[in-house]
Nucleic acid binder design. Structure first.
Lengths: 215, 215
DNA sequence: ACAGAACCGTACCGTACGGTACGGATAGAG
DNA sequence: CTCTATCCGTACCGTACGGTACGGTTCTGT
């Protein structure tokens, strides 16, 4: 068969998932009906069921498909001066805010949260595992690099990362999930990222003289 | 009419809302059917529609009903020493974690988030306005009292509060909403509250000598 | 005691959706 | 050219739910 699938799904199937995501963003979970997706994507319901099993399989496929678009920090082991490390942190904070405030991200998180009550939250675990986990690991790698270069200090990397996350996101994610329009002030994200990193250094930063002492 | 309504709803109606909340906690939004609520509460669907208008009205009433059970810090204007202020902060942090991790709270937040896509997120705004807002105001009053007594310092009370919130909650709320079972480690909340307040003082605390200087 | 309102339980209606089946079109394999 | 597999479009089925109607019962105010 000549179908060249890049990520587990054929191009045709990915196109269908894209249309399904558009429906989800526009109208929430209830807008993602099998008939609606088939009509929007110009495919038959029969094909949907052959490709994704059932409606839940389709929803899971939408999450898996979207999760295959996350970039992350790669630790190259090279030394990094304080200015660059700080810039990396600010960039991470800004990226995080951008990702969390994205329409598709919000729609998928709403979907997974809405399903969390029943069926032991399959979609929630899928979303965390495929989306969030990779972001977390990239950020922790960044923190480890910062500690190795004596820019910051902490005992528990995971704990430090969660503190950074809290300082950056605060209650913004939930407010956006709840639909509070004022929360998505995209133009304020840069200042928010700066402030968060500033506070993070106040908690975990190593002063230059101390850095020399412990080096 | 002899019906003594305490909070906008008669006792009978509140009992019905309680049963509806149980259904919501047990099975999510889809479990809250008009027939199901009527059966569980031993009332007729006709009464449900007379009391709450339609299904959305019932959901809104559930939120309003639940929101009428929030205690908050009341600022009495009296001086407060540092130990007591710190204890108040830790108690607030612990209360916040307890509230957010409560089954009913999680279920209602999931409900409001699930509806946030369509109908301009009525329930979301209702939940924020009736539930969260009061918690926020109580906490900000507490912070103001702490600043008045020179225990902490900040420029923007709202900004300082959001920092505190982020340090306390981090990404815990969203993880719980997604159904991550490991997130609801109830027994760790005390330590988390302590740590968060510790960090908050590191950012906004006023040292005793500085306190004397500026007094 | 009586009238009227509120209420319960059940039955009923229309609709929308998940899932299946089928006929016809298309395209690649031999 | 023919056979076969995939696919589209539509029609179809069963169910579940939101909302309404109605008869019978209990409660309330006078």
């Amino acid at each position: 068969m000549g179908e060249h699938r890049e990520q587990g799904y054929t191009p045709r199937q990915r196109a269908v998932l894209e249309r399904a995501l558009e429906l989800l963003v526009a109208g929430g979970e209830k807008a993602v009906t099998t008939a609606g997706v088939a009509r929007a994507a110009n495919c038959s319901k029969e094909s949907l069921y052959r490709w994704f099993g059932d409606r839940d399989g389709l929803l899971a496929a939408m999450i898996a498909h979207q999760a295959s678009k996350v970039r992350t920090f790669a630790d190259d082991g090279e030394p990094m001066d304080r200015v660059h490390f700080r810039a990396h942190l600010v960039a991470f904070a800004r990226d995080l805010l951008d990702v969390l405030s994205g329409e598709v991200s919000l729609a998928l998180n709403r979907l997974a949260i809405g399903q969390a009550s029943r069926e032991e939250s399959r979609l929630g675990r899928l979303l965390v595992a495929q989306g969030r986990r990779r972001i977390d690991e990239g950020a922790i790698a960044l923190l480890e690099a910062g500690r190795r270069n004596r820019h910051i200090a902490y005992d528990d990397a995971d704990d430090a990362y969660r503190t950074l996350y809290g300082l950056v996101v605060r209650d913004l994610h939930v407010r956006m999930l709840l639909g509070e329009s004022g929360a998505r002030r995209h133009e304020k994200f840069a200042a928010m990222a700066e402030g968060a990193v500033e506070r993070f250094f106040a908690l975990h930063g190593v002063r230059e003289k101390e850095r020399a002492d412990t080096a």
